[in-house]
């Protein structure tokens, strides 16, 4: 990225235009505990890096704790123990297509693994996964398929479910990792611009869990992204989304284009993926405006699938800014 374009937390808040409610959340640090509202926590630390693309892993762990504790209003160990039991097989769905630079950072994933281990989940019952082994390796992950530690491999190793899963316009085979092996999933996407569907945040990450994502980019991914997230294994097993917003990208995605990244140094946590995606979208829009780029709508790729995911047919969450409370810590 151009350092001239770097945006710190203060400038981010100053230039925020993402709606009165969202702004109120950002500035006041409040969120509603009423179940009818959705929360998104954005945890930020300015001292995470020791170089442009290198981070202190221990500080990432602390940032994760901060995000989790503020989201759930509990101490971190209690949260993880509440969310996951010793019987669970937990899949960590990372996003690795773009290789190093714009993939879920391995040290963030390692921090999540440590918390799961502390919660009593057995190491071999933790599976870090994406579509292909080679994508994981390219993003800096070490593959492992066995029982002596946490596992890491692509769907190519175990294949897809034998039965077509359908919802609305989408019909796919789902990765056996999520359909047969895992009882729970933590979604670990990255925050980035997407050249076809507008933005790729939480919901879009599950295109990496199906056999035919190439069929679902028409019409800016609408309603396909929402439909894929209605597949029972995806909808019912995803317990938490932790979005890697350390170095997001506001243009040129999904491939890594460093000139369009910025140092946000944040993690975004939510259980409502629609609210998370909406919030991420607004952040991308804000950054585009800050860099004199047209909005995604003006670029012909407004991510309308986010609204579709909130409609009565899907009810995956809310994209109503009045019902999304963003807590920034």
């Amino acid at each position: 990225m151009s350092h001239n374009h770097a945006i710190n937390r203060r400038r981010f808040c100053q230039s925020s235009i993402i709606g009165a409610s969202l702004l109120a959340g950002l500035h006041n640090g409040i969120y509603c505990q009423n179940g009818s509202f959705s929360r998104v926590v954005i945890a930020t630390r300015s001292d995470l890096r020791f170089s442009r693309f290198d981070f202190f892993s221990d500080r990432i762990s602390k940032l994760l704790d901060t995000a989790i504790e503020n989201y759930f209003e509990k101490k971190s160990p209690a949260v993880w123990a509440d969310l996951f039991s010793q019987r669970d097989v937990v899949g960590l769905k990372v996003n690795c297509l773009a290789g190093k630079g714009l993939s879920t950072h391995p040290f963030l994933v390692e921090a999540v693994i440590q918390r799961l281990l502390q919660a009593g989940v057995e190491a071999h019952k933790i599976i870090v996964w994406d579509r292909l082994d080679r994508d994981l390796e390219r993003a800096g992950y070490s593959l492992y398929y066995g029982r002596s530690k946490s596992q890491c491999y692509g769907t190519n190793r175990v294949g897809y479910s034998g039965q077509i899963v359908e919802f609305g316009s989408a019909g796919s085979l789902v990765s056996r990792i999520i359909s047969d092996l895992c009882t729970a999933v933590i979604n670990l996407p990255v925050l980035k611009d997407h050249g076809i569907v507008g933005v790729s945040v939480g919901m879009k990450n599950f295109f990496g869990a199906i056999n035919n994502p190439n069929k679902y980019h028409d019409n800016i991914g609408d309603p396909y992204v929402a439909d894929v997230n209605m597949f029972p294994d995806i909808r019912n097993k995803t317990r938490l989304t932790i979005c890697d917003a350390l170095t997001p990208q506001y243009e040129g995605g999904p491939p890594f284009m460093p000139q369009w990244t910025w140092q946000m140094d944040s993690l975004m946590v939510a259980q409502d993926m629609v609210a998370l995606d909406y919030t991420g979208w607004q952040i991308i829009e804000q950054q585009r405006e800050f860099n004199n780029l047209p909005s995604l709508e003006a670029s012909g790729r407004k991510p309308s699938y986010i609204h579709t995911a909130a409609d009565e047919k899907h009810l995956l969450g809310t994209d109503d800014p009045a019902k999304i409370f963003v807590k920034k810590v």
């Binding site: 076809i196 035919n212 190439n214 999904p254």
Partner: peptide
């Protein structure tokens, strides 16, 4: 006539 970003595939897969 798919327009395809780097690392992505066309509709055909």
């Amino acid at each position: 006539e798919c327009v395809i970003d780097d690392l992505e595939r066309g509709y055909c897969g």
